[in-house]
Simulated scan of single mutants.
Amino acid sequence: MTADPESDQTTEQIIAVSTRLFAQLGFDGASMRLIGDATGLDAATVTAHVGSKTDLYRTVVGRAFEAERSAVAGMVGAFTPTWTSMSRLLDAYLDFYAGSPQIVELWLHRRMGDAADISGLEDVYVRPPFLQIAEALRTEAAVDVDVDYAIWTIVWLVSGFLSTGIMHSTPPDHPHGTHMHRTPEDLEDFRGYLHEIMRRILPLPD
């Protein structure tokens, strides 16, 4: 059977549009009819290309996880319980999500209970690298440090900053802005803050 470039292109278009709509509205808010309207197709044609809405969501989420894994694979694969290794992982993780706002929004919806009946995705994609890093860190972390919470602190801080930005209190005319904002300068300030927080939580050898 030969590949059909036109069909493949339509499938990719549906997935791209679905990623945007799932990120904006969540799984529960984005109907197949809405996805079809946004791609100029009827719902039956969308289903013929990508399967059910659940199948489509699994594809979108799977691709998002794979994109993250590809971005940090080198750091995770070579991870050692040292600050150098942790620093590289923090930078790669932050840079990936800073450049992937749709995926940030997708995860925020999921963490708020969106598509709660579609389970098992985190076990497939999140657990393997999480366990690898956690097991490595336990060899160096102080006995009173909960490594699981320490790792999830990275996720919580990054998603929180990238989804809301920051409001500066002083001076009143802060050059980055006086209201909620997230400038490139803020991103670099946050990078330093993230590194400092993790140094304090996990004082690893250099």
Rank of each mutant, 00 (worst) to 15 (best):
H49L: 07
H49P: 14
K53E: 09
L56H: 08
L56G: 01
L56E: 03
Y57S: 00
Y57W: 15
Y57N: 01
V60I: 01
G62P: 00
A64S: 10
E68A: 05
E68P: 00
R69T: 02
R69Y: 06
V72F: 04
G74N: 10
M75W: 15
G77P: 05
F79L: 08
F79A: 07
F79R: 09
T80A: 14
T80P: 12
S85E: 05
S85F: 14
M86P: 04
S87Q: 08
L89Y: 11
L90M: 02
L90E: 09
D91F: 07
D91R: 08
A92N: 06
Y93C: 03
Y93V: 01
Y93W: 09
L94V: 02
L94I: 13
L94Q: 13
D95H: 03
Y97P: 02
Y97G: 09
A98P: 04
G99F: 15
G99H: 15
P101Y: 07
Q102H: 11
Q102D: 14
Q102M: 07
I103F: 00
E105W: 04
W107I: 07
L108I: 13
R110A: 05
R110N: 03
G113A: 06
A115V: 01
A116N: 10
I118A: 04
I118N: 00
I118L: 07
I118S: 00
L121H: 02
L121W: 03
E122M: 14
D123W: 02
V124G: 00
V124D: 07
Y125T: 07
F130L: 15
L131P: 08
L131S: 05
L131N: 04
L131C: 14
I133A: 01
I133H: 01
A134R: 15
A134I: 06
A134W: 01
E135F: 08
E135A: 09
A136R: 12
R138H: 10
E140K: 10
A141M: 08
A142F: 02
D144V: 12
V145Y: 14
D146P: 01
Y149W: 10
W152I: 13
V155A: 14
L157Q: 13
L157E: 09
V158H: 01
S159W: 06
L162H: 09
S163K: 15
S163E: 03
M167E: 02
M167V: 14
M167G: 04
H168L: 12
T170M: 11
T170Q: 11
T170A: 10
P172Y: 13
P172D: 15
G177A: 12
G177H: 05
G177W: 08
T178I: 06
M180C: 04
H181D: 03
R182F: 01
T183A: 03
P184C: 07
P184Y: 14
